[in-house]
């Protein structure tokens, strides 16, 4: 694929909840490890401030949002910024699918939290694959 990113990943920026940390860990895993060439991270704080580059990114690319609580700030902010949310993940819903992983910790996730983040990251990566054409994907790194 070209150097241009194709899917925007927007995680929760929450401070006080474990699920927020899970959302960020999953987002980092997607953009740094699983699909680095196909994705880019956009910070919520910049969308809140109306940063032009961030707004342009969400306006031009499909977005996958990862929310840590029911307030769904990431999803709402992408929508308010004129973006299209291709898939909105709520970490609590993901946890319901992987109840064997018990997440704990905010500053630092426990093993269950890291495993839940990994499971979420894999789901996000699958969505990314569905949003971009085959010749745009990251070569042999797909599951």
């Amino acid at each position: 694929m070209s150097g241009e990113k194709r899917v925007v990943i927007v995680p929760c920026s929450g401070i006080g909840k474990t699920y927020g940390t899970v959302s960020r860990e999953a987002a980092y895993e997607v953009v740094e490890d699983l699909r680095p060439a196909a994705t880019q991270l956009v910070a919520l704080s910049q969308l809140v401030l109306g940063d032009e580059a961030s707004r342009a990114a969400v306006a031009a690319c499909p977005a996958v949002t990862l929310d840590g609580c029911k307030l769904a700030c990431a999803t709402k902010m992408v929508q308010e910024s004129g973006g299209a949310v291709a898939q909105a993940f709520a970490v609590l819903d993901v946890y319901r699918r992987y109840k064997q992983f018990k997440p704990q910790g905010i500053a630092e996730l426990n093993e269950g939290g890291l495993k839940l983040a990994h499971a979420l990251a894999e789901e996000v990566a699958a969505v990314v694959d569905g949003l971009i054409t085959p010749n745009e994907t990251d070569g042999g790194r797909h599951a």
Binding site: G14, I15, L71, A72, C73, A74
Partner: peptide, 10 residues
């Protein structure tokens, strides 16, 4: 504390 996005999303 409060999450910054809630100024708009809340």
């Amino acid at each position: 504390t409060i999450c910054l996005p809630l100024f708009l999303a809340g």
